[in-house]
Design a binder for these strands. Structure first.
Lengths: 145, 145
DNA sequence: GCACATTAGATTGTGTACAATACAATCAGA
DNA sequence: TCTGATTGTATTGTACACAATCTAATGTGC
Protein backbone atom coordinates (compact mmCIF):
# COMPACT_ATOMS: atom_id res chain seq x y z
CA UNK A 1 0.00 0.00 0.00
CA UNK A 2 2.90 2.33 -0.59
CA UNK A 3 1.82 5.47 -2.39
CA UNK A 4 3.74 7.92 -4.46
CA UNK A 5 3.73 10.69 -1.86
CA UNK A 6 4.24 8.61 1.28
CA UNK A 7 7.77 9.84 1.73
CA UNK A 8 6.46 13.42 1.88
CA UNK A 9 4.45 12.73 5.00
CA UNK A 10 5.84 14.32 8.13
CA UNK A 11 5.53 11.00 9.95
CA UNK A 12 7.79 9.29 7.45
CA UNK A 13 10.55 11.83 7.64
CA UNK A 14 13.70 11.36 9.66
CA UNK A 15 14.72 14.99 9.44
CA UNK A 16 11.61 16.29 11.16
CA UNK A 17 11.92 14.50 14.52
CA UNK A 18 15.60 15.43 14.44
CA UNK A 19 14.71 19.07 13.97
CA UNK A 20 11.85 19.07 16.47
CA UNK A 21 13.78 17.09 19.08
CA UNK A 22 16.75 19.40 18.91
CA UNK A 23 14.57 22.45 19.44
CA UNK A 24 12.64 20.91 22.32
CA UNK A 25 15.77 19.76 24.12
CA UNK A 26 17.40 23.16 23.74
CA UNK A 27 14.23 24.69 25.11
CA UNK A 28 14.51 22.49 28.16
CA UNK A 29 17.94 23.92 28.82
CA UNK A 30 16.71 27.48 28.87
CA UNK A 31 15.50 27.76 32.48
CA UNK A 32 18.64 26.05 33.80
CA UNK A 33 20.92 28.23 31.73
CA UNK A 34 19.14 31.41 32.74
CA UNK A 35 20.38 30.82 36.26
CA UNK A 36 23.94 31.32 35.06
CA UNK A 37 23.03 34.01 32.51
CA UNK A 38 23.83 31.97 29.39
CA UNK A 39 21.88 31.08 26.27
CA UNK A 40 22.33 27.64 24.76
CA UNK A 41 24.74 28.87 22.09
CA UNK A 42 26.73 30.76 24.69
CA UNK A 43 26.73 27.62 26.85
CA UNK A 44 28.25 25.32 24.24
CA UNK A 45 30.79 28.02 23.42
CA UNK A 46 31.79 28.16 27.07
CA UNK A 47 31.98 24.36 27.16
CA UNK A 48 34.66 24.44 24.49
CA UNK A 49 36.55 27.13 26.36
CA UNK A 50 36.33 25.29 29.67
CA UNK A 51 38.33 22.53 28.01
CA UNK A 52 40.77 24.70 26.12
CA UNK A 53 41.21 28.16 27.59
CA UNK A 54 42.29 29.83 24.37
CA UNK A 55 41.30 29.41 20.72
CA UNK A 56 40.64 31.52 17.65
CA UNK A 57 37.24 31.97 16.06
CA UNK A 58 37.88 29.51 13.27
CA UNK A 59 38.76 26.69 15.66
CA UNK A 60 35.73 27.46 17.80
CA UNK A 61 33.53 27.42 14.72
CA UNK A 62 34.92 24.06 13.62
CA UNK A 63 34.18 22.53 17.03
CA UNK A 64 30.69 24.03 17.24
CA UNK A 65 29.67 23.77 13.57
CA UNK A 66 29.09 27.52 13.53
CA UNK A 67 30.45 30.23 11.25
CA UNK A 68 31.74 33.71 12.06
CA UNK A 69 28.37 35.27 11.26
CA UNK A 70 26.93 33.45 14.23
CA UNK A 71 29.96 33.44 16.49
CA UNK A 72 30.96 37.10 16.27
CA UNK A 73 27.87 38.44 18.06
CA UNK A 74 27.87 35.53 20.53
CA UNK A 75 31.48 36.19 21.46
CA UNK A 76 30.87 39.93 21.80
CA UNK A 77 28.03 39.14 24.16
CA UNK A 78 30.18 36.78 26.23
CA UNK A 79 32.86 39.46 26.33
CA UNK A 80 30.37 42.07 27.56
CA UNK A 81 29.38 39.66 30.32
CA UNK A 82 33.01 39.37 31.33
CA UNK A 83 33.35 35.65 30.63
CA UNK A 84 35.90 35.92 27.81
CA UNK A 85 38.35 38.36 26.24
CA UNK A 86 38.87 38.95 22.51
CA UNK A 87 42.28 39.94 21.23
CA UNK A 88 44.00 39.89 17.86
CA UNK A 89 47.01 37.61 17.65
CA UNK A 90 50.44 39.27 17.63
CA UNK A 91 51.86 36.80 15.12
CA UNK A 92 48.95 37.06 12.70
CA UNK A 93 46.57 39.94 13.08
CA UNK A 94 43.90 38.09 11.14
CA UNK A 95 43.41 35.70 14.04
CA UNK A 96 41.20 36.73 16.90
CA UNK A 97 42.18 34.94 20.09
CA UNK A 98 39.31 34.15 22.42
CA UNK A 99 40.50 33.66 25.99
CA UNK A 100 38.43 32.66 28.99
CA UNK A 101 38.51 35.00 32.01
CA UNK A 102 38.57 34.05 35.68
CA UNK A 103 34.81 34.74 35.89
CA UNK A 104 34.26 32.56 32.84
CA UNK A 105 36.27 29.75 34.33
CA UNK A 106 34.45 30.11 37.64
CA UNK A 107 31.15 29.62 35.85
CA UNK A 108 32.11 26.01 35.24
CA UNK A 109 31.46 25.28 38.88
CA UNK A 110 27.84 26.41 38.62
CA UNK A 111 27.36 24.74 35.26
CA UNK A 112 28.57 21.39 36.54
CA UNK A 113 25.13 20.34 37.75
CA UNK A 114 23.32 21.12 34.51
CA UNK A 115 24.11 17.90 32.61
CA UNK A 116 22.77 15.79 35.48
CA UNK A 117 19.60 17.83 35.75
CA UNK A 118 19.05 17.52 32.02
CA UNK A 119 19.80 13.81 31.86
CA UNK A 120 16.71 13.13 33.90
CA UNK A 121 14.44 14.86 31.44
CA UNK A 122 15.35 12.57 28.55
CA UNK A 123 13.74 9.22 29.20
CA UNK A 124 16.32 7.00 27.54
CA UNK A 125 18.24 4.16 29.10
CA UNK A 126 22.00 4.63 29.03
CA UNK A 127 22.14 2.03 26.24
CA UNK A 128 19.61 3.97 24.19
CA UNK A 129 21.39 7.24 24.84
CA UNK A 130 24.62 5.66 23.68
CA UNK A 131 22.94 4.30 20.57
CA UNK A 132 21.51 7.71 19.75
CA UNK A 133 24.89 9.30 20.30
CA UNK A 134 26.57 6.88 17.90
CA UNK A 135 23.93 7.35 15.22
CA UNK A 136 24.08 11.14 15.40
CA UNK A 137 27.84 11.21 15.10
CA UNK A 138 27.68 8.77 12.23
CA UNK A 139 25.52 11.28 10.35
CA UNK A 140 27.66 14.23 11.42
CA UNK A 141 30.84 12.53 10.22
CA UNK A 142 29.31 11.95 6.82
CA UNK A 143 27.55 15.23 6.42
CA UNK A 144 30.55 17.34 7.29
CA UNK A 145 33.29 15.09 5.96
CA UNK B 1 39.28 8.05 35.70
CA UNK B 2 36.00 9.93 35.78
CA UNK B 3 36.47 13.54 36.72
CA UNK B 4 34.11 16.06 38.21
CA UNK B 5 33.67 18.07 35.01
CA UNK B 6 33.60 15.22 32.48
CA UNK B 7 29.91 15.65 31.83
CA UNK B 8 30.56 19.25 30.77
CA UNK B 9 32.74 18.19 27.86
CA UNK B 10 31.14 18.69 24.48
CA UNK B 11 32.09 15.14 23.50
CA UNK B 12 30.13 13.71 26.41
CA UNK B 13 26.94 15.59 25.68
CA UNK B 14 23.97 14.10 23.92
CA UNK B 15 22.31 17.43 23.26
CA UNK B 16 25.17 18.78 21.19
CA UNK B 17 25.26 16.20 18.39
CA UNK B 18 21.49 16.46 18.33
CA UNK B 19 21.68 20.21 17.87
CA UNK B 20 24.54 20.09 15.38
CA UNK B 21 23.08 17.22 13.38
CA UNK B 22 19.73 18.93 13.04
CA UNK B 23 21.34 22.07 11.71
CA UNK B 24 23.59 20.25 9.28
CA UNK B 25 20.77 18.16 7.88
CA UNK B 26 18.54 21.20 7.44
CA UNK B 27 21.42 22.89 5.69
CA UNK B 28 21.62 19.99 3.27
CA UNK B 29 18.00 20.59 2.34
CA UNK B 30 18.58 24.19 1.40
CA UNK B 31 19.81 23.79 -2.19
CA UNK B 32 17.05 21.28 -2.98
CA UNK B 33 14.37 23.47 -1.45
CA UNK B 34 15.58 26.56 -3.24
CA UNK B 35 14.56 24.93 -6.49
CA UNK B 36 10.94 25.07 -5.37
CA UNK B 37 11.29 28.41 -3.58
CA UNK B 38 10.80 27.10 -0.04
CA UNK B 39 12.79 27.36 3.18
CA UNK B 40 12.91 24.35 5.48
CA UNK B 41 10.26 25.75 7.81
CA UNK B 42 8.03 26.56 4.88
CA UNK B 43 8.63 23.04 3.54
CA UNK B 44 7.50 21.22 6.67
CA UNK B 45 4.51 23.54 6.85
CA UNK B 46 3.57 22.61 3.30
CA UNK B 47 4.05 18.92 4.14
CA UNK B 48 1.35 19.17 6.76
CA UNK B 49 -0.95 20.96 4.32
CA UNK B 50 -0.33 18.43 1.56
CA UNK B 51 -1.84 15.85 3.89
CA UNK B 52 -4.67 17.96 5.24
CA UNK B 53 -5.66 20.84 2.98
CA UNK B 54 -7.10 23.00 5.70
CA UNK B 55 -6.16 23.68 9.33
CA UNK B 56 -5.94 26.54 11.77
CA UNK B 57 -2.70 27.95 13.16
CA UNK B 58 -2.99 26.16 16.47
CA UNK B 59 -3.30 22.73 14.84
CA UNK B 60 -0.39 23.51 12.54
CA UNK B 61 1.68 24.59 15.49
CA UNK B 62 0.91 21.42 17.40
CA UNK B 63 1.99 19.27 14.45
CA UNK B 64 5.16 21.26 13.82
CA UNK B 65 6.11 22.10 17.43
CA UNK B 66 6.02 25.79 16.53
CA UNK B 67 4.15 28.70 18.10
CA UNK B 68 2.28 31.57 16.50
CA UNK B 69 5.27 33.85 16.84
CA UNK B 70 7.13 31.65 14.38
CA UNK B 71 4.21 30.55 12.24
CA UNK B 72 2.57 33.91 11.57
CA UNK B 73 5.44 35.29 9.45
CA UNK B 74 5.99 31.91 7.77
CA UNK B 75 2.34 31.69 6.78
CA UNK B 76 2.27 35.26 5.53
CA UNK B 77 5.27 34.45 3.37
CA UNK B 78 3.62 31.32 1.97
CA UNK B 79 0.53 33.39 1.28
CA UNK B 80 2.54 36.01 -0.59
CA UNK B 81 4.01 33.21 -2.70
CA UNK B 82 0.51 32.04 -3.53
CA UNK B 83 0.82 28.61 -1.95
CA UNK B 84 -1.81 29.10 0.76
CA UNK B 85 -4.69 31.38 1.73
CA UNK B 86 -5.38 32.77 5.22
CA UNK B 87 -8.96 33.44 6.27
CA UNK B 88 -10.73 33.90 9.58
CA UNK B 89 -13.29 31.25 10.40
CA UNK B 90 -16.94 32.24 10.08
CA UNK B 91 -17.98 30.25 13.14
CA UNK B 92 -15.23 31.58 15.37
CA UNK B 93 -13.39 34.65 14.26
CA UNK B 94 -10.47 33.83 16.53
CA UNK B 95 -9.50 30.92 14.29
CA UNK B 96 -7.43 31.61 11.24
CA UNK B 97 -7.99 28.97 8.59
CA UNK B 98 -4.98 28.13 6.49
CA UNK B 99 -5.97 26.58 3.16
CA UNK B 100 -3.69 25.24 0.46
CA UNK B 101 -4.11 26.72 -3.05
CA UNK B 102 -3.91 24.93 -6.37
CA UNK B 103 -0.33 26.17 -6.80
CA UNK B 104 0.53 24.96 -3.33
CA UNK B 105 -0.92 21.55 -4.05
CA UNK B 106 0.89 21.40 -7.38
CA UNK B 107 4.18 21.96 -5.59
CA UNK B 108 3.85 18.50 -4.08
CA UNK B 109 4.72 17.03 -7.46
CA UNK B 110 8.07 18.80 -7.55
CA UNK B 111 8.75 18.11 -3.88
CA UNK B 112 8.19 14.39 -4.29
CA UNK B 113 11.78 13.71 -5.26
CA UNK B 114 13.35 15.56 -2.37
CA UNK B 115 13.10 12.81 0.29
CA UNK B 116 14.87 10.35 -2.00
CA UNK B 117 17.63 12.78 -2.83
CA UNK B 118 18.13 13.51 0.86
CA UNK B 119 18.05 9.88 1.93
CA UNK B 120 21.27 9.27 0.07
CA UNK B 121 23.13 11.94 1.98
CA UNK B 122 22.58 10.31 5.36
CA UNK B 123 24.77 7.24 5.51
CA UNK B 124 22.60 5.08 7.73
CA UNK B 125 21.24 1.64 6.96
CA UNK B 126 17.48 1.43 7.00
CA UNK B 127 17.73 -0.36 10.36
CA UNK B 128 19.81 2.44 11.80
CA UNK B 129 17.49 5.06 10.39
CA UNK B 130 14.57 3.27 11.98
CA UNK B 131 16.40 3.03 15.29
CA UNK B 132 17.18 6.74 15.20
CA UNK B 133 13.57 7.52 14.35
CA UNK B 134 12.31 5.51 17.32
CA UNK B 135 14.75 7.09 19.74
CA UNK B 136 13.94 10.63 18.65
CA UNK B 137 10.20 10.10 19.00
CA UNK B 138 10.74 8.51 22.38
CA UNK B 139 12.38 11.74 23.52
CA UNK B 140 9.77 13.90 21.82
CA UNK B 141 6.91 12.03 23.47
CA UNK B 142 8.45 12.58 26.86
CA UNK B 143 9.60 16.13 26.38
CA UNK B 144 6.30 17.39 25.08
CA UNK B 145 3.99 15.11 27.03
C1' DG C 1 59.35 43.90 -4.05
C1' DC C 2 54.90 43.86 -6.09
C1' DA C 3 50.50 42.26 -7.98
C1' DC C 4 47.33 38.64 -7.04
C1' DA C 5 45.36 35.04 -4.43
C1' DT C 6 44.20 33.40 0.04
C1' DT C 7 42.73 33.68 4.71
C1' DA C 8 40.26 35.15 9.11
C1' DG C 9 36.73 37.85 10.94
C1' DA C 10 33.13 41.19 10.60
C1' DT C 11 29.02 42.90 8.44
C1' DT C 12 24.57 42.67 6.09
C1' DG C 13 20.25 40.72 4.93
C1' DT C 14 16.78 37.17 5.38
C1' DG C 15 14.49 33.90 8.03
C1' DT C 16 13.56 31.54 11.87
C1' DA C 17 12.57 30.45 17.24
C1' DC C 18 10.38 31.67 21.32
C1' DA C 19 9.04 34.25 25.66
C1' DA C 20 6.19 37.87 26.83
C1' DT C 21 2.67 40.76 25.85
C1' DA C 22 -1.39 42.59 23.47
C1' DC C 23 -5.88 42.14 21.78
C1' DA C 24 -10.17 40.79 19.97
C1' DA C 25 -13.60 37.08 20.07
C1' DT C 26 -15.92 33.79 22.71
C1' DC C 27 -17.30 31.43 26.84
C1' DA C 28 -19.09 30.71 31.55
C1' DG C 29 -20.94 31.69 35.93
C1' DA C 30 -23.59 34.39 39.13
C1' DT D 1 -26.83 39.64 30.73
C1' DC D 2 -23.02 41.54 32.41
C1' DT D 3 -18.23 40.43 33.84
C1' DG D 4 -14.23 38.16 34.27
C1' DA D 5 -11.70 34.24 32.42
C1' DT D 6 -10.18 31.82 28.44
C1' DT D 7 -8.76 31.18 23.74
C1' DG D 8 -6.47 31.99 19.18
C1' DT D 9 -3.60 34.81 16.77
C1' DA D 10 -0.52 38.81 16.19
C1' DT D 11 3.21 41.72 17.75
C1' DT D 12 7.54 42.86 20.06
C1' DG D 13 12.09 42.03 21.56
C1' DT D 14 16.11 39.12 21.88
C1' DA D 15 19.04 35.74 20.01
C1' DC D 16 20.53 32.83 16.83
C1' DA D 17 21.84 30.65 11.85
C1' DC D 18 23.83 31.17 7.57
C1' DA D 19 24.78 32.81 2.71
C1' DA D 20 26.95 36.50 0.62
C1' DT D 21 29.90 40.16 0.76
C1' DC D 22 33.51 43.10 2.59
C1' DT D 23 37.99 44.23 4.55
C1' DA D 24 42.38 43.92 6.32
C1' DA D 25 46.37 40.95 6.90
C1' DT D 26 49.24 37.57 5.10
C1' DG D 27 51.18 34.48 1.66
C1' DT D 28 53.13 33.58 -3.32
C1' DG D 29 55.13 33.59 -7.62
C1' DC D 30 57.61 35.97 -10.66
Amino acid sequence: MTEKYDSLKLKNQLCFPLYACSKEVVRRYKPLLEEIDLTYTQYITMMVLWEKQEMNVKELGADLYLDSGTLTPVLKKLESKGFITRKRSQEDERNLIVHITREGAALKEQAAEIPDKMGGCVNLTSEEADQLYQLLYKILDRVTG
